[in-house]
């Protein structure tokens, strides 16, 4: 099949970008979306033009590297699928597709479809961990974890950090991402000692990175390739409230960001 692609081309972060139209042909239904872009790029290279830069690595939907908008939909808008797993059989001959990078203040464009998502790493740095110096762990079966808690933790931990939730949100909010990590760790017995400081610190870090706030559109859940449910945001808000109240009586070690927010 033959397709028309309108691709966002931007040479670097501080240069202006624009859409450029390309035709690709010889696309077969069993190719993946990124293999279709490989065909385009081989063609561009042969003509001596710069290939379209896009991020990708595992091409099996788990590393979280890939992701851009296709006709305004993150990862192409196919339920539970990253763009690298999206097969071309879902498109038809003559389709016209617009490809553009994630659009969010916290994800500046680096080149073409590549954006900087290091803000996600900084959110994790603020509290997305359980402190266990290597070697100090108790026997793995010493602490029982109810299966339902373990399953919820897994459902939340399935997040691949691709950023589709932010790109789909009208507020560019990172609440689905942040709530997934908070839920993963806060629901486990091992995560309890740092539960309150984690909730306070991660929410403060999220705001510091200029992500917006959730206003319940649910777009994030709809595009999440790992189908992380919206209810985790509610859970995060409850955990945050719990931590705020608790902090009135007990000293919880928090980052300067939280202290600042509390004073306001």
């Amino acid at each position: 099949m033959k397709l028309t692609l309108n691709v966002w081309r931007q040479a670097s972060a501080n240069r202006a970008g624009s859409f450029v139209t390309y035709e690709v042909s010889g696309i077969t239904p069993d190719m993946s979306f990124l293999e279709m872009l490989d065909v385009l790029n081989e063609d561009l290279l042969t003509k001596g033009e710069a290939p379209v830069a896009f991020e990708h690595d595992c091409r099996e939907g788990i590393c979280g590297s890939c992701g851009f908008l296709v006709n305004g939909k993150a990862h192409g808008g196919h339920k539970g699928t990253t763009i690298c797993q999206l097969a071309m059989r879902f498109f038809k001959d003559g389709d016209s597709l617009t490809l553009e990078p994630w659009r969010a203040k916290a994800f500046p464009v680096i080149r073409d479809l590549v954006v900087d998502r290091s803000s996600f790493d900084r959110i994790i740095q603020s509290g997305g961990f359980i402190t266990v110096p290597t070697g100090s762990a108790p026997n793995a079966n010493a602490i029982l974890v109810p299966k339902e808690n373990s399953d919820t933790a897994f459902d939340a931990a399935a997040c691949i950090g691709c950023g589709a939730c932010v790109a789909a949100c009208p507020n560019a909010s990172a609440m689905l991402f942040t709530s997934a990590k908070i839920t993963h760790l806060n629901v486990l017995p091992q995560g309890q000692p740092q539960r309150d400081q984690r909730s306070l610190n991660m929410v403060a870090a999220m705001k510091e990175e200029m992500f917006g706030t959730c206003t319940n559109h649910g777009e994030c859940e709809a595009v999440c390739p790992k189908e992380i449910p919206l209810e985790f945001i509610g859970k995060m808000n409850r955990d945050l409230a719990r931590a705020v109240f608790k902090r009135r009586r007990e000293p919880i070690p928090v980052s300067p960001l939280v202290q600042e927010a509390m004073q306001k």
Binding site: G135, P138, A140, L144, S150, F154, A157, Q190
Partner: peptide, 22 residues
């Protein structure tokens, strides 16, 4: 043996039985 202990303590959500064991 120590690896599993370490990972569980970090919060790695390994599959569990209904009794809460790995």
């Amino acid at each position: 043996v120590n690896i599993i202990d370490q990972c569980v303590a970090q919060g790695v959500p390994f599959a569990r039985e209904y009794g809460g064991l790995l």
